[in-house]
C-alpha cells in the first residue's frame, strides 16, 4: 500500500505571538510539524507497518521548512518531496492546486492530510485536493482500520461517530484525537539523513504565476479582545434565578 501524507510547517502554538500594526510577528525559530499532520503521519506509519506499505511525505514551504520534512522522515516515513516556495501568503486554493499538480502523475492508495493547519485553521486544502483529484474522501478521522481492500474511517461528526469506508484511491483528513504521534528515536533521526528527499519548484510542476494567484487574502490581524469578568449572583435561589432569567432576557437577549 502506498500512502502520501501532505504535511505543513507551522509556528509552535506555545511560542509567543505579537501583533503590530495589523501584522503578525512570530518567532520563526520555533516552527513545528502541524499536529494534525503528525497524526496523519503516525496513522500511515501504523497502517503501513501492519499491511506492508510505504509512506511518502510531501511538504510545500520555504527552505527552512525542510527541517519539518526531516522530522516526518525521522518518525519513519520512507521518502519526502519538498516543493519549495518563496511566497508564504498562499491560501488553501493555491496549496491544493500545487498538490493537485504534484499528484497528477503519482500512483497511490491513499492520501492523508491533517484536517487543518494550526496556523490558519482553514481546513480546506484536503477537501479541495480530493475534489480536484476526483477522489472519494472523508474528514476529521479519529480512527482507521484497513478492511477488505478499503480503509474504514471512524469519523467524528457533530452528533456522534460515523464509520465510513473509503475505497482506494482515496483521501482522508485526520484529527489529532486519533493517536499519539511517535517521538523520533535517535536511530530514526540518524536514518532520516540518508532517506531520499526530492526538492522541486512549482515551476517543475508546470505551474505559472497565474496558477499561484491567491483568491483570498489576509488583510490584517487584530488582538482578541480581553474577556470581561463574569458576574456573580448571590442570595436566595428563588430571587437569584428570577434575576438571572430577567437579565438573560433583557440584557443578553438570549431568551
Amino acid at each position: 500500500m502506498k500512502f502520501y501524507i501532505c504535511i505543513k510547517q507551522v509556528p509552535d502554538v506555545n511560542a509567543p505571538l505579537q501583533i503590530k500594526e495589523g501584522q503578525l510577528l512570530q518567532d520563526t525559530d520555533r516552527m513545528i510539524l502541524n499536529a494534525y499532520d503528525a497524526s496523519a503521519v503516525e496513522e500511515a506509519l501504523v497502517l503501513s507497518e501492519k499491511h506492508d506499505g510505504e509512506v511518502e511525505v510531501v511538504l510545500i514551504g520555504p527552505d527552512k521548512a525542510k527541517e519539518t520534512l526531516r522530522k516526518a522522515l525521522a518518525m519513519g516515513a520512507d521518502k519526502g518531496t519538498h516543493i519549495v516556495t518563496e511566497d508564504e501568503s498562499y491560501d488553501s486554493a493555491v496549496y491544493s492546486k500545487i498538490l493537485t499538480a504534484f499528484f497528477n502523475d503519482k500512483e497511490y492508495d491513499y492520501i492523508f492530510c491533517g484536517k487543518q493547519a494550526q496556523d490558519t485553521d482553514s481546513g480546506l486544502t484536503g477537501g479541495m485536493l480530493a475534489m480536484q483529484l476526483d477522489l472519494p474522501y472523508t474528514t476529521n478521522a479519529v480512527g482507521m482500520e484497513f478492511e477488505n481492500g478499503s480503509i474504514l474511517v471512524k469519523r467524528q461528526g457533530d452528533a456522534g461517530q460515523e464509520m465510513i469506508s473509503v475505497p482506494s484511491p482515496g483521501l482522508v483528513t485526520c484529527s489529532n484525537d486519533m493517536n499519539e504521534p511517535r517521538i523520533p528515536s535517535l536511530k530514526g533521526i540518524m536514518q532520516s539523513k540518508r532517506k531520499p528527499v526530492d526538492t522541486i519548484s512549482t515551476g517543475d510542476l508546470g505551474l505559472s504565476e497565474d496558477d499561484l494567484a491567491v483568491r483570498t487574502q489576509i488583510l490584517s490581524f487584530e488582538e482578541k479582545p480581553e474577556r470581561e469578568a463574569g458576574r456573580k449572583f448571590e442570595g436566595e435561589p428563588d430571587e437569584v434565578a428570577r434575576e438571572v432569567a430577567k437579565l438573560l432576557d433583557e440584557e443578553a437577549g438570549v431568551l
Binding site: E67, R70, K71, P184, L186, I189, S192
Partner: peptide, 9 residues
Amino acid sequence: QDQQMIRDA
C-alpha cells in the same frame, strides 16, 4: 540540525 532534532525529541 541533528542536535536540534535530538533536543526537540
